[in-house]
């Protein structure tokens, strides 16, 4: 197990390195000069600098302060060197440490993603199991129809509908609050609904297949109660493909959080990343992408570990 973990972590390093190179390259080769954007940003309520007033000296000084005067490879190595030590640099825009900015936003996204994942696993497994047990009945058809609509429904639209019904009409939940469990319910439902639908469909098909296995028939023939057969034998064995999908869904939830955070006005790294990309705030974009990549690697590792718990036949080598 230990060597398996080490090996998996080791293989994560090239992934992170590759992601860093890609993001660094993309940001630097896209049009837009962050120094000029900072110095001459139009839209101020008073007069910003005109380019003729941006002296070479000031431009170079600003470039130097931001570290943008160095060769690209040096900038990249500096970024990597600092990132390894946990220092992601300072935001070009606010001058605040990126790690601090991310740390302030991350809990909200994790909270939202975790809540959405919990909702989606609970609802997905429950409704998938019900549909499998009521295979080819109206209940199965109805549940799968809801699942199909869940897969095809954009979270943006669903979020607004939930707000209209449960916040405006019924007044059960707030529209723009960010504190307390009531503020989390609608965003988590909006974000988790699609994942719940995917999990439900997968649980259903996997469970239907498992229920036809010999060992399930044997268990039933031995006179074991139906619920026990389903929960202890069939369902557990059906969950391995589901676990893989849950891992992938967690990544999707982190990505989808951008939309839901926007609809509900919640803080989070999705919103932070979008704003940073628009303003060419390199350090923040790099920090957020690196963090997201690390999260993917860790979640996938946890999923791999969970296989062994779900199916004792799986051995870590």
């Amino acid at each position: 197990m230990g060597s398996f973990l080490l090996r998996r972590l080791w293989t994560g390093i090239p992934v992170l390195l590759g992601v860093s190179v890609l993001v660094f390259g993309m940001l630097h080769f896209l049009p837009g000069d962050p120094v000029m954007m900072m110095l001459t940003q139009p839209g101020g309520q008073a007069r910003p600098m005109l380019a003729s007033e941006v002296s070479d000296d000031l431009y170079k000084r600003m470039q130097q302060q931001l570290g943008l005067d160095r060769p690209l490879h040096e900038q990249f190595l500096n970024f990597l060197g600092r990132a390894v030590r946990g220092d992601l640099g300072s935001s070009f825009r606010s001058d605040l440490p990126v790690a601090q900015t991310i740390a302030r936003n991350l809990p909200f996204t994790l909270e939202l993603a975790a809540a959405a994942l919990s909702v989606s696993i609970a609802a997905g497994v429950l409704f998938g199991t019900l549909a499998a047990l009521r295979h080819r009945t109206w209940a199965d058809t109805a549940l799968m129809a809801v699942a199909v609509s869940g897969v095809s429904m954009p979270s943006f639209w669903l979020g607004l509908m939930l707000l209209l019904v449960f916040a405006l009409e019924l007044r059960w939940f707030p529209v723009v609050a960010t504190q307390g469990w009531r503020a989390l319910v609608l965003p988590a439902a909006a974000l988790g609904f699609r994942a719940a639908a995917i999990i439900a469909r997968l649980v259903r098909s996997s469970l239907i297949e498992t229920l036809h296995q010999d060992y399930v028939r044997t268990a039933r023939a031995k006179g074991l109660p139906g619920t026990g057969v389903v929960l202890r034998h069939a369902l557990r064995n059906s969950l391995i493909p589901v676990a893989t999908v849950v891992g992938l869904q967690f990544g999707n939830l982190l990505g989808g959080a951008v939309i839901v955070e926007s609809v509900f006005g919640r803080p989070g790294i999705g919103q932070l990343a979008v704003q940073a990309i628009l303003e060419k705030d390199f350090p923040v974009v790099q920090g957020v992408v690196l963090l997201t990549a690390v999260t993917y690697v860790i979640v996938n590792l946890l999923i791999d570990i969970s296989y062994g718990w779900l199916d004792p036949r799986v051995r870590y080598r």
Partner: peptide
């Protein structure tokens, strides 16, 4: 809050 419809709903509630 960047979404205009959400801002309107907050006003209406």
């Amino acid at each position: 809050v960047t979404e205009p419809t959400t801002r309107l709903l907050a006003l209406e509630t």
